[in-house]
Amino acid sequence: CHSECLGNCSQPDDPTKCVACRNFYLDGRCVETCPPPYYHFQDWRCVNFSFCQDLHHKCKNSRRQGCHQYVIHNNKCIPECPSGYTMNSSNLLCTPCLGPCPKVCHLLEGEKTIDSVTSAQELRGCTVINGSLIINIRGGNNLAAELEANLGLIEEISGYLKIRRSYALVSLSFFRKLRLIRGETLEIGNYSFYALDNQNLRQLWDWSKHNLTITQGKLFFHYNPKLCLSEIHKMEEVSGTKGRQERNDIALKTNGDQASCENELLKFSYIRTSFDKILLRWEPYWPPDFRDLLGFMLFYKEAPYQNVTEFDGQDACGSNSWTVVDIDPPLRSNDPKSQNHPGWLMRGLKPWTQYAIFVKTLVTFSDERRTYGAKSDIIYVQTDATNPSVPLDPISVSNSSSQIILKWKPPSDPNGNITHYLVFWERQAEDSELFELDYCLKGLKLPSRTWSPPFESEDSQKHNQSEYEDSAGECCSCPKTDSQILKELEESSFRKTFEDYLHNVVFVPRKT
């Protein structure tokens, strides 16, 4: 048989008469490798580009789960590009990614509803959504962080984005990388972005840091009482949809009607710091009717980097990364020049730590249904340095008659930039024990000054392991946590139920 035959053949030295091919099969003959313009397919066939392209389009058009959109890589027609490569849609070739590779997620039936953290986790790592997304989240724990972890990498949506009755959302900033909504599939009414009845939605994105392009379709905003109209108009300008909307697409009466839409800028007039305090004062603000001013709200939190936005980490279910302080308005003076500047002394802060701070007014709604208010920009203030805590785990070892090696770990709280350490030492008198000992005694162990690591005695271990207080009263049991108490109650309830079950099964009433 021919060298490319495997198993047997019907005619000697003829690659077209093989029972099976050793390498690849091409047009009725066995070959060692697939010549151009053919590609290896499933490690035994040679196919042309049209064959591989037909497989790709067949799966793409069917949208069946589990099928493969075949691509070409290293002269092979394979189910998908290997790690580190992405497909070129024009020629199906796998090309190296520039940075992290995109991950295209194809949605069944063309859309997916995100109504819980669990459903959001199914899209973790996706960068391109081939379909439409509907966000409908009523509640949950730590929602802002969970949504950002699972949806934060999405850069492109081919269909539309719909935010509907998501009472738990305060902001859409968890879509931190969303840059493009194509609108290839539109919501009824030709809408590519749809926001309806979101009672706590206050911000779409921080438009000073976020760009969003909507290729096709219109915007729809109705019944978002805490979303200011200025935020919607800003989205029109940034996304390129200005002029597409009709009169009733953006409701003037049901958007922002319960919001404090600040239209003035508060400026800080005085800032002073110490290692654990920050004193702030800002310019006074009074609405047209000074009785509408209820006070100020001061927001602050630790910020290692200057990239904080107002609604980071917030949701309507209680999660809030900001510390909020309510401040009463100052006494009002008739003389504008003698107006008191409101302020606040922030206490209990960490030394040498940068804080993000902003302040906003708290006002009631005027009778004319106009909203007044003022808010400052987010500023960054760093507390002063102070003395560091003591170095940890000092170790001293003498390696000769004239040297001592000293080692330690950095302090747990540096409280500033540590530039150097101060080492103090003092000579001590020799131990009298060394002169009084009889060095001729056998088995004498000389006193040693070398360091030995501390260890816990058996008594201390027994005390720590004991669940009861000892007789001397030195140790006591740790208080039980809520989960331990709940577990004990469940076990007790189970024992009672099981005992009742045994009584009912074992003891049967005697027939009379």
Rank of each mutant, 00 (worst) to 15 (best):
K103L: 09
K103M: 04
V104W: 14
C105T: 00
H106M: 12
L108R: 11
L108E: 08
L108F: 11
E109V: 01
E111R: 13
T113Y: 10
I114S: 01
I114C: 04
I114N: 02
S119E: 08
A120M: 08
Q121S: 07
Q121W: 02
R124P: 01
C126I: 02
T127F: 13
T127A: 03
G131H: 01
I135C: 01
N136F: 09
N136K: 04
A144I: 03
A145T: 08
A145L: 13
L147P: 01
L147Y: 01
L147H: 02
G152W: 10
G152T: 01
I154G: 00
S158N: 06
S158E: 04
G159W: 01
G159M: 01
Y160L: 04
L161R: 00
I163C: 07
I163P: 00
I163H: 01
R164V: 03
R165F: 15
Y167N: 14
V170G: 14
V170Y: 12
V170W: 05
S173A: 10
S173E: 11
F174N: 02
R176D: 03
R179F: 09
L180R: 09
I181A: 00
I181K: 00
G183P: 02
G183V: 01
G183C: 03
E184A: 07
I188Q: 04
I188W: 03
I188N: 02
I188D: 03
Y191V: 05
A195K: 00
A195C: 15
A195P: 00
Q199K: 15
Q199V: 13
N200R: 07
L204N: 03
W205S: 01
H210N: 03
I214Y: 02
I214V: 14
I214F: 13
L219V: 06
L219C: 13
F220W: 05
N224P: 00
P225S: 06
E231T: 13
H233C: 14
K234M: 01
V238K: 15
S239P: 01
S239Y: 04
G240Y: 15
T241M: 14
T241Y: 11
K242C: 15
K242Y: 11
E246S: 06
R247W: 12
I250L: 08
A251T: 12
L252C: 14
K253N: 09
G256Q: 04
S260M: 07
E262C: 07
E264C: 04
L265C: 06
K267S: 11
F268V: 07
F268C: 02
R272V: 12
F275N: 05
I278T: 02
L280H: 00
L280I: 05
W282G: 00
P288S: 11
P288D: 04
F290A: 13
F290P: 14
D292Y: 07
D292W: 12
L293R: 02
L294D: 07
L298N: 00
E302G: 15
A303L: 04
A303I: 14
Y305H: 12
D312K: 14
G313L: 08
Q314A: 13
D315M: 06
D315R: 10
S319Q: 05
S319R: 10
N320R: 14
V324P: 03
D326M: 05
D326R: 02
P329Y: 03
P330S: 06
L331F: 05
R332N: 04
R332Q: 10
S333Y: 02
D335W: 13
K337N: 13
S338P: 12
Q339D: 14
P342Q: 06
L345D: 15
R347F: 10
G348I: 01
L349P: 01
K350H: 14
P351D: 02
Q354L: 13
A356S: 08
V359M: 04
V359W: 00
K360R: 08
F365A: 04
D367K: 11
E368I: 12
E368N: 02
T371P: 10
Y372L: 12
Y372Q: 06
Y372S: 07
G373L: 03
I378P: 02
I378L: 13
V381F: 01
V381H: 03
Q382A: 15
Q382L: 06
Q382M: 15
Q382D: 04
Q382C: 04
D384N: 05
T386M: 10
P388S: 07
P388V: 15
V390L: 06
L392R: 04
D393N: 07
D393L: 07
P394M: 09
S401D: 05
S402D: 10
S402Y: 14
I404Y: 01
I404Q: 02
I405N: 13
W408P: 04
W408K: 00
K409H: 03
K409N: 15
